[in-house]
Amino acid sequence: MEQFLTQFFNVSLMLEAWPIVSRGLLMTLLLCVVVVPLGFAGGLMVALLGTVEHRWVRWPLVVYVDFFRAIPPLVLLIVIHSGLPFAGIRFSPFASVCLAFFLNNSAYYGEILRAGIDSIGKGQVDAARSTGLNALQAQIYVVLPQAIRNVLPDLVSNTVEVVKLTSLASVVAFHELLYSAEMARSITYNASPIVMAAGLYILMLWPVVRMLSRFEHRISS
């Protein structure tokens, strides 16, 4: 028991590792602040383009969304960071992560938003267009506000997924939370920094997950 505690819950080691791990935490937060809005904006674009009925818009969009939903984000990240240099295209770890997440997230957020848009009756667009709003205005002022409200739980739970997936950035040596904790572990030969990182992830996301559950419960009842 004693050994278990020193191996996993060594408080003095945690304190020692805190400067490194806290910097990692900051980088993870920074990553989220960049990647989530970027992905959401991309998703909005995907969803809005999805309302265009022209086949030269529709088909490329289907291919884009299917491709980036099917490819594992870790594989995508490694292709961008370690594959593209062979074609002479080189991205920093941060840029690689941003690009990979943008491609992946815009497809996922896009599909969620599209489901939201589909849930709004066609009469809403008819009414908006009949008063002179153009197609984009009808979407922005009439359809999207209702659509987003309808799929809010899905958007939030996708965002939780995205935050968790930022730990993938450790693979391309981006110094985020998991990478920093792993570094501290390899210096100290002790798992406590990893446990601390796990604790920090849970601390960040648990309130969100709890709120989501309550919200979904309220909707279903």
Binding site: G121, G123, Q124, D126, A127, A128, T131, G132, L133, Q137, Y141, V142, P145, Q146, R149
Partner: peptide, 23 residues
């Protein structure tokens, strides 16, 4: 329209002003 098609997320006044302001 038969189904009114008011914008449910906006007040009565905002339903009327939307086109006035945006168009």
């Amino acid at each position: 329209f038969q189904q009114f098609n008011l914008y449910p997320h906006l007040t009565a006044r905002a339903n009327v002003t939307l086109a006035l302001r945006k168009v």
